[in-house]
Simulated assay, not measured.
Amino acid sequence: MSGTTAIRTAALVTLTALAGGCSSSGEETAAPGGTTAPAPSASAPATGTPAATAAPSPVTTANTAAVCASLDKLIIAGSRKIADDSAAATRRELTPEQVNAQLKGNLTDLADDVRGQAAGARDPEIKALITDTADWIDAGARSATPVKWLSSTFVGIPRRLTDECHA
């Protein structure tokens, strides 16, 4: 399969995963490098001393909802850009090296945009989740095979955000 065909396929897989992100089971989470790890279990025993948990303030809850909604839009827009650029790469008959460079640039831009959302998050757990997501996307930009990373790891990001990014 040519590099251009591979990126088109990966982009299609990514967009499909985005569309199905809300219906996932939440049993696994994609990790950097394309591996999967079990998602944290809600029934896992707590460690340490019990702490009083305060409900988030209405301001923090509203901020989290806004940040998560913006993050969803960024991930979808980034995926569409990757798909659009891959279609353009086919028309321009780019080499696999050019396709990889283009994809790495798209992923770097997306990671920067995602990191910008983390800066606006008031909830420290949401901020950490978004920063971690940006780090994962950066790992894809640094990957020797970003097309493989896109179809193995990136497709898990929307599901993870659907499961974890909410007030």
Results as ranks from 00 to 15, higher is better:
Asn63Phe: 05
Ala66Pro: 13
Ala121Tyr: 05
Ala87Arg: 07
Ala54Arg: 09
Gln98Thr: 02
Leu110Cys: 00
Pro146Ala: 02
Ser86Tyr: 01
Thr16Gln: 06
Ala17Cys: 13
Arg122His: 04
Ala101Pro: 00
Ile126Arg: 03
Arg115Gln: 08
Leu15Glu: 02
Glu125Cys: 10
Pro38Leu: 14
Val99Arg: 06
Ala11Cys: 10
Thr16Lys: 09
Val67Ile: 04
Val155Cys: 03
Arg159Thr: 13
Cys165Asp: 02
Ala51Ile: 08
Ser143Asn: 03
Ala101Glu: 03
Asp112Thr: 11
Lys81Trp: 00
Leu103Pro: 00
Ala128Asn: 04
Leu71Ser: 10
Thr162Val: 11
Ala69Leu: 11
Ala119Phe: 08
Arg92Lys: 01
Arg8Ala: 14
Arg122Trp: 12
Leu71Glu: 14
Arg8Ile: 14
Gly48Lys: 05
Val114Asp: 00
Ser70Glu: 04
Ala39Asn: 12
Asp123Asn: 06
Leu71Cys: 05
Asp84Asn: 05
Thr61Ile: 12
Ala139Cys: 03
Leu161Val: 12
Gly116Arg: 08
Leu150Arg: 00
Ala119Leu: 11
Ala17Glu: 04
Leu74Thr: 05
Pro38Asp: 15
Arg160His: 09
Ser86Asn: 12
Asp163Glu: 09
Val67Phe: 03
Ala10Met: 03
Ser151Asp: 02
Pro96Trp: 00
Arg80Ser: 14
Ala42Asn: 11
Ala65Gly: 05
Ala65Ser: 06
Val67Asn: 05
Asp132His: 05
Arg122Ile: 10
Pro38Lys: 11
Ser86Trp: 09
Asn106Gly: 02
Thr35Phe: 10
Gly34Thr: 15
Thr4Phe: 09
Ala128Arg: 14
Met1Cys: 10
Lys73Tyr: 14
Asn63Tyr: 11
Lys104Leu: 01
Thr4Gln: 14
Ala10Glu: 00
Ala17Ile: 06
Trp149Ser: 04
Leu110Lys: 01
Val59Lys: 09
Gln102Tyr: 02
Cys68His: 07
Arg160Asn: 06
Glu164Ile: 06
Gln102Arg: 07
Gly20Tyr: 07
Pro146Cys: 07
Ala65Tyr: 04
Val13His: 01
Gly33Glu: 15
Ala121Gln: 08
Asp138Ile: 12
Gln102Ile: 10
Ser57Trp: 14
Val59Ser: 12
Thr145Phe: 03
Gln102Lys: 02
Ala10Cys: 10
Ala46Asn: 14
Pro40Asn: 14
His166Leu: 07
Ala19Arg: 03
Ile76Val: 15
Gly33Pro: 14
Ala134Trp: 07
Ala144Cys: 05
Pro146Phe: 00
Ala52Lys: 09
Thr47Phe: 02
Ala121Pro: 08
Ala144Asn: 09
Pro45Phe: 11
Val99Gln: 00
Gly21Thr: 00
Ala37Ser: 15
Glu164Arg: 06
Cys165Phe: 02
Ala10Thr: 02
Thr64Phe: 12
Pro58Leu: 01
Arg159Ile: 11
Thr90Glu: 10
Leu150Asn: 01
Ala31Cys: 13
Asp109Asn: 06
Leu18Ala: 12
Gly116Asn: 13
Ala62Gly: 12
Pro158Phe: 06
His166Gly: 05
Thr60Pro: 07
Cys165Val: 01
Ala6Arg: 09
Ser24Thr: 15
Thr64Ser: 14
